[in-house]
Amino acid sequence: MTKLAFLGLGVMGFPMAGHLQAAGHDVCVYNRSPAKAEDWVSKHGGRSAPTPRDAASGADFVMACVGNDDDLRSVCLGPDGAFAGMKEGAIFVDHTTVSAKVTEELYGKARDGGLSFVDAPISGGQAGAENGQLSIMCGGDQAAYDAAEPVMNTYAKLCRRIGVSGAGQMTKMCNQIAIAGLVQGLSEALHFAEEAGLDGRSVVEVISQGAAGSWQMSNRYETMLDDAFEHGFAVDWMRKDLGICLATAEETGASLPVTALVDQFYKDVQNMGGGRWDTSSLFKRLRKVKG
């Protein structure tokens, strides 16, 4: 049994923390809205704390899954932040998708305080979190990763260290770049099939078994055709992530023309009122364009 803290109980963090408690760890949770933390304790046991510092006090590992750069700073830094409560040698594992810049900043502050910091963004969506089947891409010192990996494996299908601090976040950017193009391509294929008078389900049955097949195709085509977009990662969050990708591309000199275009398509979806729809709602945008 390991003493753990988990900060952030959204659609991903809530079940992830639950897996840790179910595995026999001693888990203390923190959430910005205390009612969510109380709900988690009523479902899973464990304890809740009023501040990140209190949750992190005495913990061997502190895991976080919050919203953005500012949210992450707020749970790490300051008199009530986790870093102020963590014991020397403890390891902070960040599952949030944030910029590599804030990761490097917090890695440095953690190191200066005798702590370790692993950036460990996740992919797999709400279903992956609930089923303990997440893909976790990590950056940070090898020793810290080696210590944290068995804990992360509680909710991981695959967990890998890619490189130094920030490498996990850079890899997550690659993930989001790939998803953006895949979802737009799938949306256009289904739209084309409809306009050509074909049955979309029959089309996907055939093409999914060939070179066009993908996770997005297998897991999202039916809900897309059913005009149901409440099954995954929200457009608002995708735009946040793509903004990080595009800003980082400016810094590194990478060219992301398709990503930039799809980001604008997601802006169209937001303007349709679909900020909380899942990312496959690019298909709904094409149906609206037709109309």
Rank of each mutant, 00 (worst) to 15 (best):
V93F: 01
K101Y: 14
F83N: 07
G67R: 05
M86N: 06
D60E: 15
D71C: 12
V62E: 03
K109E: 13
A100G: 14
D80H: 11
K101H: 15
L77F: 10
V93I: 14
T96E: 08
S57T: 15
D94I: 11
G58S: 02
F61T: 03
M63G: 03
V102D: 02
N68K: 10
K101T: 15
V93M: 10
L72C: 01
V66Q: 05
V75E: 05
G89M: 10
H95Q: 14
D70Q: 14
H95I: 05
K101G: 13
D94S: 15
F61K: 00
C65W: 08
A59L: 04
D71W: 02
V62Y: 06
V66R: 01
D71F: 08
P79A: 13
V98L: 08
H95L: 12
F61M: 08
S99I: 04
G89Q: 10
A82C: 10
G89C: 11
G58A: 05
G58M: 03
C65R: 05
S99H: 00
V62P: 02
Y107A: 11
Y107L: 12
V102A: 01
D69Q: 12
G81A: 10
C76N: 09
V93C: 07
G58Q: 04
D80L: 06
G58K: 02
V62Q: 05
F61V: 07
G108Q: 09
L106M: 11
F92P: 00
A82W: 01
L106N: 06
G81Y: 03
L72M: 11
G81R: 03
G78W: 01
V66T: 02
T103S: 09
V102M: 03
T103G: 02
L106H: 00
T103E: 01
S99G: 13
A59W: 05
Y107T: 09
S74C: 09
A82T: 04
V66P: 07
K109I: 13
T103D: 07
S99Q: 09
E104P: 06
C76M: 13
D60H: 14
A64I: 05
T97A: 11
L72T: 06
K87S: 14
A59V: 09
I91T: 10
R73Q: 09
S99L: 06
L77M: 15
S74H: 10
Y107E: 12
Y107D: 12
L106K: 01
A100Q: 11
A84S: 11
R73Y: 08
L72H: 00
E88A: 14
A59D: 02
G85S: 07
A90W: 04
